[in-house]
Amino acid sequence: MTAFGVTDAGDVLARFDAAETRILLSLSGQLAEMLADVAEPSAGLDPAIGRLFPDAYREDPDASAEFSRFTRTDLAAAKVAAASTVQRSLASTSASDDDPSPSSVAGAGAVPSSSDAEFVLDTEAGWSWLRHLTDLRLTIAARLGVVDDPNAFDEEPDPAQTSDDDLLARGLFDWLGYVQELLIAALEEGAAVRAAGNGGTGTASPPV
């Protein structure tokens, strides 16, 4: 089960089980692949790309195109970098037993199960996670045909009228949102811990 804690230093301690780790690595890898093709002309037709790189000028296609020319490469690189941060976090303690090479990232210690992932996120890495979780959710939503209908996810999908693929995608979408909500709370709690430590009042009681 996904869980987030907060260290004494105010960093976030994250834990994902083996199945969750596999899913996140798979989704993250797929998104990174999609972003690699962002400069291809065909990418312009992909609604997910359209949502990840929206028009900056809604009523001025020329200005939007110019904005896109100047920003898209950097924006895509930042999104890929966030994906890499997430993948590195998950790989840092999830190396399987049959991989004898030492972990490239210093782990916080041995974890009970070889494929669970447990790692510490500072604020910067936490934001990479939040951004990447957002990009994953935006992409899945676009795959489900949802871009701007504000009520699209208000109700649970009807299993009788929804394909298995779409049900699975919706499940992933909801789960990623749950993870993001927990991570936001943990980052806020971490900030409160740091503030209490620096302020010296010690009265800040972080929310659970």
Binding site: L52, A56, R131, R137, L138
Partner: peptide
């Protein structure tokens, strides 16, 4: 404003300039 919009897109927010 263009810098802000670019930053918002980096966060995945749907932002535009006018």
């Amino acid at each position: 404003m263009e810098r802000h919009v670019e930053a918002m897109h980096g966060y995945g927010l749907w932002a535009s300039i006018t």
